[in-house]
Design a protein around this nucleic acid. Sequence first.
DNA 1: TATAATGTTTGAAC
DNA 2: AGTTCAAACATTAT
Length: 245
Amino acid sequence: MEGPPLKVIAERLAVFKGKKVKSASGTAKIEKEATIGKEVEGVFSRGKNLFIRFADFSFRIHFLMFGSYRINEIKSGAKARLSLAFNDGTLSFYNCPVSILRNDEIEKLYNENIDITSEKWDLEKVMELASKMRNELICDVLLDQNVFAGVGNIIKNEALFLAKVHPLSVVGKIPEEKLKEVALKAREFSLLFYEAKKKGESIDPYLKTYGEKECPACKGKVLRKRTGIRNRISFICPPCQVLYA
DNA sequence: TATAATGTTTGAAC
DNA sequence: AGTTCAAACATTAT
């Protein structure tokens, strides 16, 4: 799950703020019991991570590809990784790694300035980090959670298409202004993604290249190819996307 | 029925 | 000893 839809989930789960944990269960091998009797002080996302914050530590939950949650409901045929019971409801998470982190560690590890969904997202900071990765491919840097936190394969592909940059471009060969445009398009599409999900809409109608066979600009055939160190699918329109190599 | 896909972490192998 | 890479995890649509 990419950052924007996760942020929408975090905002929905904020209804649990102020509630005290009555009991905690689940298959995650962590000290769940430490939260019993404690009050949820906040629910928020940073990149692709979801946090349920207590006074001095938080649950960190990552949905990966297939994570899900339920409120006041049990998902049939699945054991919850983490289930929190409150006086007036329950919250359960499935198919997701859950860990516990001290709150000061979270601030150290997950900087809001690079979170593509954050109000505090900072283009200058992102450019500084991205520019350092001169020898890497742009398709890899966009998926690097320490540079573009919350960007996943959908946002990666859409940003590159919107900026007209080929995914196999080498970062150091991309003109600075162009690199900035890639970052800004990733940001722009992420906000669109967020707004769509917030309204309960699918992102599909907004996709220009992800999953498409035909380029909406030149009507040419979109190439589908695994790229980069993570070997993720890239959708490429060679005539429209410039290869800086 | 097999495959692929909105991913990350871990630990074996080199 | 540092780096690389496959495995593990697990759901659902096609």
